[in-house]
Design a protein around this nucleic acid. Structure first.
Lengths: 243, 243
DNA sequence: ATAAATTTGTGCGTATGTATG
DNA sequence: CCATACATACGCACAAATTTA
């Protein structure tokens, strides 16, 4: 039984000392984000205490959002999530760069479709008009952040697939059609577990929750130019809004 | 085998006709929100098609968020979720009433606590200052929408528990302390599966996702008066933001 | 497909030290 | 000094979820 720096009968409770020790290890990067901690049993042995005492410490860390406990699997370090400000000018590449991470976007599909009624209404398309749908995966430092369906009115962007810039930036794409600036008019946010397909795209092992955001972008005249349906990995982003 | 209005070899695929038929039934309220659809096998028999064809239709409805498929349990109609606008003046009671539903808030806990460092910083409290924490459950038409931890600086609200209005409205509570108006400065949004305790409070059967929102409210002088941590049932609300 | 092993969740009982009245 | 309450800590047993063999 190695005490491992634990002081019994001192002023601070044993479980608090353990919580502090584990927090320090996480802060120091000894246990990486999304990495797994030792099991409760192992930690109890290591600190020379009962498993309940370790559990008390872990519960405290979980409450504070530092770790995530999964029954039957283990204890995992929560990765510091990307701060994703949503506002009138929301630009994926800018946001990720501001978080000191490298943005990238992959196009996994591009086709002309007859849009859903609701989407057509948002884009002010009539029954016969078509839309381009571009399906993408966005990542920060290579780790997938979200997958999006972008809809554009086809009549305004005749050869959209050919105008796609190398970095797949929406901002650059719209600029190629003479739209120098665009604004986000509204955003709707909900959440649900990822589907199997989404889990595959976003490199999730299980059906973790995704934040589902719908947003409408308009040009400087207020005319809709893009409708986007994005599913973001809830564990990897925090949406922020300044009012 | 009853065809039940299905046209074979027509212009529209059979699965689309089935999807439309089911959508119409949901819209007409024949299957209530959160109610269970017939099983895939039963539907297949009813429409006189193969179960795979029904599955195609159901998958389409699930994609559009009209139904939720739970393996081993069945197909459930998603209840039309409450539109919850988030902005500078966000008031729970007003929002729910605007959705033509009856708001209610239950207090399940009220105590003086030493706030977390992060919360203390947001409320501009020093190490020694205490905060009131009021734990509530908010509901629309009796159906729980979310559960919140509200933090208030104690020095500014000496006898806060005694000043709680009958309807537990935060707006009225603050008015009782001379704060006629307050504004939301920012909101942070993430999502995760509900904990067991949250599932109990929110009347969820399993760990469905909750939208976790943190928000800071300030008075007309910009001084923080309330920090709120709310966990909302993702299936029952859609957050909306106008930019 | 099944079984075994691993890991967390929960409950009960016991014991100790500290603070309060 | 005693009674009570509370937080802390340990031990054992089993349930439930997940992974591995």
């Amino acid at each position: 039984m190695m005490a491992a720096g634990i002081q019994r009968g001192g002023a601070t409770a044993i479980w608090r000392q353990i919580a502090q020790a584990l927090e320090a290890e996480i802060a120091a990067g000894i246990t990486a984000p999304e990495g797994q901690l030792q099991s409760e049993y192992t930690l109890a042995e290591r600190f020379g205490v009962n498993r309940h005492t370790v559990r008390q410490a872990i519960a405290h860390l979980a409450d504070r959002g530092l770790v995530r406990v999964e029954r039957g699997r283990g204890i995992f370090v929560r990765s510091r999530s990307l701060d994703y400000p949503i506002g009138g000018r929301t630009r994926f590449h800018e946001i990720v760069r501001r978080g000191n991470r490298a943005p990238s976007r992959t196009v996994i599909g591009c086709e002309a479709v007859k849009p859903d009624r609701k989407i057509a209404a948002d884009l002010r398309l009539n029954e016969t008009e078509m839309a381009w749908r571009i399906v993408t995966i966005s990542a920060a430092d290579g780790s997938p952040i979200g997958t999006s369906d972008h809809y554009f009115p086809r009549h305004r962007f005749p050869d959209l697939p050919g105008a796609m810039p190398p970095d797949n930036s929406i901002t650059t794409l719209l600029r190629n059609f003479g739209i120098d600036d665009y604004l986000r008019r509204w955003t709707r946010i909900s959440a649900r577990p990822a589907t199997a397909e989404e889990a595959r795209r976003l490199e999730l092992k299980r059906a973790r929750p995704v934040l589902v955001t719908e947003a409408l972008n308009v040009d400087s005249d207020g005319v809709p130019v893009e409708y986007g349906l994005t599913r973001m990995v809830a564990d990897r982003v925090t949406l922020t809004i300044e009012h």
